[in-house]
């Protein structure tokens, strides 16, 4: 079997040089154009797992590969250039800048014309076109998340990583955000996301990872995990 498009393989490590290990032999991967979701109880290392894939912590063991290329040693900034887009959980927009400027800053590293990509983002998130001259910080929670995703899409990434994109938004907005995320995946971009709302997230996921204490507890397709009685019992509330 060929390597998955993006894989964090057997990752062990923690924050800082001598911080305690948070991840223990944890493996996370996503195929091209698919949606992979990381779920698990509080403090299970979900976000840490994703940050490890993005290069934000020191790995003692394991490797990260993107499209077959080993990128374990690269900084997050370098990974962005390699085609990874990251949307942090909080502080993920430039609040004092307009929506359009947020998108421009998202495409800062590009030297070619970015107007076409901005147009694509507007097509994906029509509300942003309407609000493009408004300060991003003045938008509603759901709209801000759209700005954040749009900003990350500006580098035309091959993988988009989302850290709890639906934290703090209403259920209706959450559904809409998930719809948009599916749309993004249909354009061929792989999605790796961490979610609190495990049930809804697994419903749209091609692949799901349940992490417990920094290690893989269950892995499978979204449907398999939703059907797994043990997973249902412990994480999905019956």
């Amino acid at each position: 079997m060929a390597d998955p498009f993006l894989i964090g393989d057997g990752m062990t490590g923690g924050y800082g040089k001598n911080g305690p290990d948070i991840l223990h032999d944890c493996t996370i991967s996503v195929e091209k154009g698919e949606i992979a979701v990381i779920v698990g109880p509080n403090g299970a290392g979900k976000s840490t797992g994703m940050k490890a894939v993005f290069g934000m912590l020191n790995l003692r063991q394991g490797s990260v590969k993107l499209g077959g290329e080993d990128i374990t040693k690269l900084s997050p900034q370098a990974r962005v250039r390699k085609g990874m887009g990251f949307v942090p959980q909080t502080h993920n927009i430039f609040g004092s800048m307009s929506v359009e400027e947020n998108l421009e800053m998202g495409g800062f590293i590009r030297t070619d014309d970015i107007s076409e990509t901005i147009e694509q983002v507007y097509e994906l998130f029509p509300i942003l076109r309407e609000k493009r001259l408004q300060a991003a910080g003045e938008l509603s929670g759901g709209q801000r998340q759209q700005v954040a995703v749009g900003r990350a899409l500006m580098t035309k990434p091959s993988v988009l990583m989302l850290d709890e994109p639906t934290a703090g938004v209403s259920p209706i907005v959450m559904d809409e955000l998930f719809d948009r995320i599916i749309e993004v995946a249909r354009t061929g971009i792989s999605i790796l996301m961490v979610e609190q709302n495990a049930r809804q997230a697994l419903e749209i996921a091609d692949k799901g990872y349940v992490l417990v204490q920094g290690a893989n507890a269950h892995t499978g397709t979204g449907k398999e995990l939703l059907a797994d009685p043990e997973v249902r019992q412990s994480f999905l509330g019956g």
């Binding site: 997050p76 900034q77 962005v80 250039r81 990251f86 942090p88 502080h91 993920n92 927009i93 430039f94 609040g95 004092s96 800048m97 400027e101 800053m105 998202g106 800062f108 590293i109 900003r151 580098t155």
Partner: peptide, 15 residues
């Protein structure tokens, strides 16, 4: 302005 607004995100954006 981006750097002043949100340093981490600015770094992430390659500034």
């Amino acid at each position: 302005r981006a750097f002043s607004d949100n340093e981490d995100l600015a770094l992430l954006s390659g500034i």
